[in-house]
Write a protein that binds this DNA or RNA. Structure first.
Lengths: 154, 154
DNA sequence: ATGATACAACAAAAGATCTTGATGTGTCAA
DNA sequence: TTGACACATCAAGATCTTTTGTTGTATCAT
């Protein structure tokens, strides 16, 4: 069960941002580290991380809302565990960034030596600013907006 | 050439935080998306992202300092490109979080049904608080601090 | 019932990040 | 030269995140 959001949906970037944001804090990474061994109750995490209860609660909420952990109530205790599916999303999103697109107005791969043609960076982009010189590849530009709406995969 | 920082070094979490923080912003993800096609100059990114120059410059700096992009000057232009090694770190760090540790005071895998023993979550943790009942596994606790200093895979 | 424990949620303050609008520097064409 | 361009950098303010202390709710042992 994948929880990843396809690249071209409106929420695509938002989902990635939420996921990576949840991972961009030492306390939260430490929590996830502790959960590698299996589920733990909040009180355990509190002891080991030596963090105030409300602080821990806050960070657990961030992780929960990002889908990185699940919680389970049992009597007085709340047990938190890693959501492995969501960890897989990290790798999905990372490999997305790796995957080269079909270049639209992009320079390399097959780097174009613009300075040799005396044309600016990607030719047609510069054309908009009044300099109309074709690049060596003659690449056309069609509203390339990077990660969204112009995806090779997803 | 890997740029990842081993788990047990002092800067381990800091490096992960810096990397994930750089990824936790829509503008920056859009930039990385645009760079999938190869290197681009700042002016191109500016056009396509429709972002103020100083704003873009700020985000490029964050990406650069996180090691996710490299820049190259050529005449008036600065070309930015993705650093693939650093993208690999994302996957390294993600799979680290996946890898189960040898449980020290952790509950599942092989989940211990604490409520059946009427003992609290991980037994010895609770003992510190004055409840001394051994768990089914009899797990001992030895300063498990999660991600740091208690790693299975360095 | 009473009191202790485990936790979530909230509000206010503190801190970090992001945006915006300058200002400065190097490059290049005219 | 002069002026236009392509940046980086900075300072101020806006905005977002995190911490801290407090309050509230549910569970449980006594």
């Amino acid at each position: 069960m994948s929880t990843s959001v396809p690249l071209r949906t409106p929420s695509a970037l938002a989902d990635r941002v939420q996921l990576f944001h949840a991972l961009s804090d030492e306390t939260r990474l430490a929590i996830l580290g502790m959960l590698r061994g299996g589920e733990r109750c909040v009180c355990d995490l509190q002891d080991d991380l030596d963090a105030a209860q409300s602080r821990l609660s806050f960070h657990l909420k961030v992780l929960r809302e990002a889908g990185l952990v699940r919680d389970r109530k049992e009597g007085r205790w709340s047990y938190y565990a890693v959501n492995a599916d969501r960890l897989a999303d990290i790798e999905t999103y990372a490999s997305e960034l790796r995957a080269p697109r079909i270049a639209k107005g992009a320079a390399s791969p097959s780097p174009v030596l613009h300075h040799l043609t005396k044309a600016p960076p990607t030719g047609l982009t510069r054309a908009r600013r009044g300099i109309a010189i074709a690049t060596a590849t003659g690449a056309t530009k069609a509203g390339a907006k990077g990660l969204v709406g112009d995806s090779c995969c997803g």
